[in-house]
């Protein structure tokens, strides 16, 4: 190797390279078998379950399908789920923006700790998330006696469901925004402030337009999780029919009572929402890339 290559030794290599191009691509067999494996895997685990939801839901005809959805308990569950999402998503959006703003535009002590704490709910089992709110607000909990005296119900009622959902969906918006705002830096904000704009004005006219697609992306994931959360909500809801049953819990009850068609009918509505979520998510990430 130390000897410099002379022309005679170099020639055959070049010739070989021309007749047999550098293997930069896999052979067609490898390529198509990899594609087949991927498609098969995705069909077995993702596509077939999705199709089966709709097929089972419509197995007994449209009338049964509609009847399962307009059933008072189902309607109550849909209403509760919408209420929870309407409260949880805006709250976590405001917090997510505030946290991302704080973390990316300022330097302060304990910043890394804050980032870790924001991610914490992802590492905790949903069941444990529900458990901690029982420990706080349940009858034997830390605030149990005080709440009982003042006749405030948190656990096994709407506030408990909202708190548990808040905990579980806490990181979504902040996590989406932090990397985005980090790459954008603070130069635009500095320019705005130096031109005399107030802090709020800077936020609404400079920061917010820059992050809107990332924000939408975070919101849509947060919303999907908020309406679909099962474990945490199941612990704190108390399963009172027509009162504290969210859509996923309603599906569980129907399923356990062997009302499969009804269970899958409600599930099909949630699947449609999931598909819409994916579509909006992809539009958002596509738009975000244009910036």
């Amino acid at each position: 190797m130390t000897k410099p290559l002379d022309v005679d030794r170099k020639m055959p290599i070049v010739k070989k390279a021309v007749s047999n191009p550098y293997p930069l691509k896999e052979s067609a067999i490898v390529k198509w078998s990899l594609i087949t494996i991927s498609l098969l895997y995705i069909s077995l685990f993702l596509i077939l379950p999705l199709i089966s939801i709709f097929v089972t839901a419509l197995e007994k005809g449209w009338e049964t399908y509609v009847a399962s959805i307009v059933h008072p308990d189902a309607l109550a569950a849909i209403k509760l789920t919408i209420t929870v999402a309407l409260i949880v998503v805006p709250l976590n959006a405001v917090f997510g923006i505030a946290a991302a703003w704080l973390i990316t535009k300022f330097t302060f002590r304990g910043k890394n700790l804050l980032v870790t704490l924001i991610d914490l709910p992802f590492a905790v089992s949903p069941v444990i998330a529900g458990l901690i709110f029982i420990l706080l607000f349940g009858a034997q909990g830390l605030f149990g006696d005080w709440l009982f005296e003042h006749d405030i119900k948190i656990v096994f009622a709407l506030p408990g469901i909202i708190l548990a959902t808040l905990f579980v969906t806490f990181p979504f918006v902040a996590r989406e925004l932090i990397p985005l705002m980090q790459t954008q830096g603070i130069t635009e904000e500095e320019a705005s402030i130096s031109l005399g704009a107030s802090g709020w004005k800077t936020f609404f006219y400079v920061t917010l337009p820059n992050i809107k697609w990332g924000l939408l992306y975070g919101l849509i994931l947060c919303n999907a999780r908020a309406i679909g959360e099962f474990g945490a909500v199941s612990v704190v809801s108390g399963h009172i029919r027509g009162e504290t049953n969210t859509m996923p819990l309603h599906i569980e009850i129907l399923y356990n009572e062997y009302q499969f068609t009804a269970a899958f009918a409600v599930a099909s509505i949630m699947s449609i929402l999931a598909i819409l979520t994916i579509i909006i998510k992809h539009i958002a990430s596509w738009k975000a890339k244009e910036f």
């Binding site: 379950p49 999705l50 089966s52 939801i53 994931l221 999907a224 309406i227 679909g228 959360e229 099962f230 474990g231 859509m247 996923p248 819990l249 599906i251 569980e252 399923y255 269970a263 899958f264 599930a267 949630m270 699947s271 929402l273 999931a274 598909i275 979520t277 994916i278 998510k281």
Partner: peptide, 11 residues
């Protein structure tokens, strides 16, 4: 990510 876990479970 988008499908509620309970829905995935029964399916």
């Amino acid at each position: 990510f988008a499908l509620p876990t309970a829905v995935a479970g029964i399916a």
